[in-house]
């Protein structure tokens, strides 16, 4: 069975396009807002949307996404309520939805129950920030049985044998962590990013998306020259933070997404 992620990346490749993958912390400032933001993002050119599951101890995240997680938790966001929102969204959008989470909320939900509930709600993939392939077998089994793509990350510190292992285990796409560090905006793309992606391309034909530190249309354009997709997180989450409560929240975020997508369109 071809997953919605596989089909999306195949279609984009056929068209000579690259994917824009925006990230939202689910429930920031509320799940109702997340729902509106996802619908608008899909309309303005998002090809895959990542929804962050808020966690009390987000040790891979920088201050912007940490703050968003705290706001989302304070607003009462839980994984079950997030899945209800996804289920509701599925009536409005067909864009692939990927959850980005830490392992503990998934463990607390129950691995098999989580994989089934996520697929039933309409989630296509899951990325677990603190679950390397060595520890991922229990979740991978349940994800595969349920038809949920488990997406793994490669890092600049990954050794060649780890890159091969991750490329083999990752489904849907491979998430390239562009820099050694936490999530957050940076002035420059790391100089060794091109080499890192070349190394990965030598061992896999799976789609490759790059995230961490990518925040401007220029940076997205540069990533578009190297990979199948660009993930933009903190810059969007910061805009949500700035516009929360304002009537222009959805429009402003939508406009930013259109701006980010422009350099990834064919012939751009």
């Amino acid at each position: 069975m071809t997953s919605r992620l596989d089909a999306t990346f195949a279609r984009l490749r056929d068209r000579g396009e690259r994917a824009l993958v925006p990230y939202f912390t689910a429930g920031d400032p509320s799940l109702a807002d997340t729902r509106r933001l996802v619908v608008e993002a899909a309309r303005r050119g998002a090809d895959v949307i990542e929804l962050g599951v808020p966690f009390s101890d987000p040790l891979a995240d920088g201050p912007v996404i940490q703050r968003a997680a705290m706001r989302a938790l304070a607003a009462g966001t839980t994984l079950p309520r997030l899945l209800e929102t996804v289920a509701a969204l599925r009536a409005e959008v067909s864009v692939p939805l990927v959850l980005l989470t830490y392992y503990n909320p998934v463990l607390a939900f129950g691995l098999a129950a989580f994989a089934r509930a996520a697929v039933r709600a309409g989630v296509d993939g899951v990325i677990v920030a603190d679950l390397p392939p060595e520890e991922a077998d229990p979740l991978a089994r349940e994800a595969e049985a349920a038809g949920l793509d488990l997406i793994h990350l490669v890092a600049p510190t990954s050794t060649p044998e780890r890159v091969r292992l991750i490329a083999r285990r990752s489904h849907g796409f491979i998430y390239v962590v562009a820099l050694t560090g936490v999530t957050g905006e940076r002035q420059e793309l790391p100089p060794d990013l091109a080499a890192q992606i070349r190394t990965l391309r030598r061992v896999t034909t799976k789609p490759v998306c790059v995230g961490f530190g990518i925040s401007t249309p220029a940076q997205v354009a540069a990533v578009g020259g190297l990979a199948d997709g660009a993930v933009v997180g903190s810059a969007i989450v910061r805009l949500v933070e700035e516009r929360a409560g304002s009537p222009s929240l959805v429009d402003d975020v939508g406009a930013f997404i259109a701006e980010l997508k422009a350099p990834l369109r064919k012939g751009a």
């Binding site: 920030a129 603190d130 679950l131 390397p132 890092a155 510190t157 990954s158 780890r162």
Partner: peptide
């Protein structure tokens, strides 16, 4: 070892 990939190596 439940850590981000960056720390595995």
């Amino acid at each position: 070892r439940f850590v981000p990939e960056t720390l595995m190596a």
